[in-house]
Simulated assay, not measured.
Amino acid sequence: MTDYDVLRVFCGPSGGYGNELGVVREGSLLPGRDDRQALAAKLGFSETVFVDDPERGVIDIYTPASRLAFAGHPCVGTAWLLDVPELVTPAGEVGTRLDGEFTWIEARAEWAPPRTLRQYASAAEVDALQVPPPGEWIYAWAWEDEAAGRVRARAFPGRGDGIDEDEATGAAALLLTDRLGRALNITQGRGSQLLTAPQPYGWVEVGGRVVLER
């Protein structure tokens, strides 16, 4: 079995929760896309990253079922692990920075995969949602405190690949921030925390805590 690290990305204030991420630091050991896809499916994380050049930050991202040009929580987690000024993804160059307990990336909304952003009237309605049948990728959200920019969210990939609910989803948070045009403090899933802030010229920062699980 190829060696890999397991991180939790977008952890809550106490260090709990967060979305697990697999990172294969020596991506050269599995250079083929089919082999990478097979390992991502076997590991079963919502995303697995293969690092092709740790010094330049060149990475390749897979879900259990497909390859992604960009994804939020894999970029935040890998930025923390590699401690590089940028990551190179098929979508483009992702700026990164570490700021105390938070790791930040800067990306563009058009890089994110399509998501249906579905607003609900209250956080309680979001909490009560059942996992929908496979179909569209839904990011369900509601204001907890609109004036303060606090959001309650849950994510349902709808891919039918065993990931019924995504614990923390940076790309969807990026899309929501771009749509609303304001900084957000998002509580997603069971208790993960994502921070976002719009930047000039169509860029958006997404940040969170990262913990090395094993």
Rank of each mutant, 00 (worst) to 15 (best):
D5R: 14
R25Y: 02
L98A: 15
D83G: 13
I105A: 08
P200K: 05
G44K: 03
E165M: 11
S28H: 07
I105D: 03
R159F: 09
F156P: 11
R25H: 04
R190M: 05
F102I: 10
G22F: 01
V9L: 05
G32Q: 11
D83A: 15
V88T: 09
L175C: 07
A65R: 05
R182V: 10
M1W: 00
S28T: 05
E136N: 06
V131R: 13
F102R: 15
D35M: 00
A38V: 05
E165H: 08
P90S: 13
Q130T: 15
Q130K: 05
Q37I: 05
A147V: 13
R214Y: 04
P200F: 02
G100L: 02
L29I: 08
R152S: 14
F10D: 12
R67F: 07
L117S: 12
A197S: 15
A41Q: 13
R25D: 04
R33A: 14
E167R: 11
R150H: 09
L82T: 11
C11P: 02
G22M: 08
Y4P: 09
L29D: 13
G27Y: 04
R209S: 09
F45L: 06
H73G: 13
Q193G: 00
A41M: 04
W111Y: 06
A140Q: 04
L129R: 12
G207N: 10
A147M: 12
A183E: 13
V206P: 01
A41G: 12
G149Y: 00
V58G: 05
S28W: 05
S28D: 13
A173H: 06
A41P: 01
V84L: 11
F10M: 08
A148C: 04
P54E: 08
E101A: 15
A71V: 04
W80K: 13
G12R: 11
A147K: 13
G12S: 15
P13V: 12
I138Y: 00
V88E: 13
V211W: 09
L21P: 10
E167D: 06
V51M: 06
F50D: 09
D3F: 01
L184S: 09
D60Q: 10
R67Q: 13
P133Y: 02
L98S: 15
H73N: 12
W141N: 07
D178G: 10
S66A: 14
A197W: 00
A168E: 10
G27R: 08
Y139D: 07
W80R: 15
L98P: 00
L68G: 06
